[in-house]
């Protein structure tokens, strides 16, 4: 076992799978010689050469469009968008082609590609470098949207994403890139996509979070458990779409109370979908309205004010108490 941060863990997954499968190709802006602006692809260029680790011209649509052609020819491209804020130029290719190649041809053609992108705030970055737009991608049928929360699941989910037969948008919480280390097993570990993980079991309240929100949520959960001598069930969503609502619904049936924590703006996000699914399948088990801790429906503020808007441990803890006290 090695203690790795998330950057190293994703790098490990890419290295492993490139060694396993010569069809795996990495491409993007500055991913080669430079190893990526966050160093996620560091060393791959030396190990696997410029044919497999491609420094592309600066064009997001082309990176994804070319990846589609590569995937249809049997390669397994892993494309990097340098920041999620620049990925929108590639959405016509993702929505218009990659996501629907399977449906368009009734499975005759598929499009196995991974679109990696660092996302999220709290890194004191300039404009366009701090958004959480997972919901935008999650609304596209045919796309799997994955968000790891720590080094270990990042590695295991990345291996699954590369092997998945369809396009996967792999959103990496850059705030968590180097924030902490975890033991990552040396042997191969693959985590199935489309499955949430019950991080800790509990009976009094269900809390759902994902990505960079997992850390402050875990702290708030610990705080309230101790303060009230209760147990809280914490679920890490891991895959945003297609959503594993069953795990959440089963938990809510047991606890009767739920809080969802989301870094993205409040409306039309994954948290709204979670509330809707609970409404569909567990409404009569609820003893309180489902609580939501989210950002606000504002354009992401510059980093001077950013932290006031992002959910933090205190705001999450207050929401847990309000839901428990309802």
């Amino acid at each position: 076992m090695a203690k790795l941060n998330m950057v190293q863990a994703i790098n490990l997954a890419l290295t492993e799978e490139m060694a396993n499968d010569e069809n795996v190709i990495v491409l993007g802006e500055d991913v080669g010689v430079d190893g990526g602006v966050f160093r996620v692809t560091d060393g791959l260029h030396d190990k696997f050469g410029e044919k497999r680790v491609i420094d592309t011209p600066l064009a997001e649509s082309a990176i994804v469009g070319a990846s589609i052609g590569m995937a249809m020819a049997g390669l397994r491209p892993v494309a990097e968008m340098q920041f999620s804020g620049f990925s929108y130029l590639s959405i016509p290719q993702l929505e218009g082609n990659a996501s629907r190649m399977r449906a368009r041809t009734m499975g005759k053609w598929t499009c196995p590609l991974v679109l990696r992108m660092p996302y999220g705030g709290a890194v004191r970055a300039l404009e366009h470098h701090s958004e959480s737009r997972e919901a935008m991608y999650a609304t596209i049928p045919g796309v799997t949207v994955v968000i790891p929360s720590g080094p270990r699941n990042a590695r295991a989910l990345m291996l699954a994403a590369i092997r998945d037969p369809d396009p996967v948008v792999f959103m990496e919480p850059k705030r968590s890139y180097r924030a902490f280390r975890e033991e990552v097993p040396e042997e191969e570990e693959v985590r199935e996509l489309g499955k949430a993980q019950v991080v800790q079991a509990g009976t009094d309240l269900t809390v759902v979070a994902w990505g960079a929100m997992m850390r402050p949520t875990l702290k708030a959960v610990d705080l309230i458990q101790k303060k009230r001598n209760i147990t809280i069930e914490l679920i890490d969503l891991l895959t945003i779409a297609p959503m594993d609502a069953d795990t959440i619904v089963e938990s809510v049936k047991k606890t009767g109370r739920c809080v969802v924590v989301q870094e993205a703006p409040r409306s039309f996000g994954a948290s709204s979908e979670i509330v809707a699914r609970i409404n569909d399948d567990a409404l009569l088990y609820l003893e309180a309205p489902v609580g939501r801790v989210t950002n606000y429906d504002v354009v992401t503020p510059y980093f001077g004010r950013e932290m006031m808007y992002l959910p933090d441990e205190q705001r999450i803890a207050r929401s847990l108490e309000e839901t428990l006290d309802f």
Partner: peptide, 17 residues
């Protein structure tokens, strides 16, 4: 025009293979 990029990716794959 979106297909022109698929063509380039396919061509790259042919070169690579």
């Amino acid at each position: 025009a979106s297909q022109t990029l698929h063509a380039v990716g396919l061509a790259y794959a042919m070169q690579y293979k």
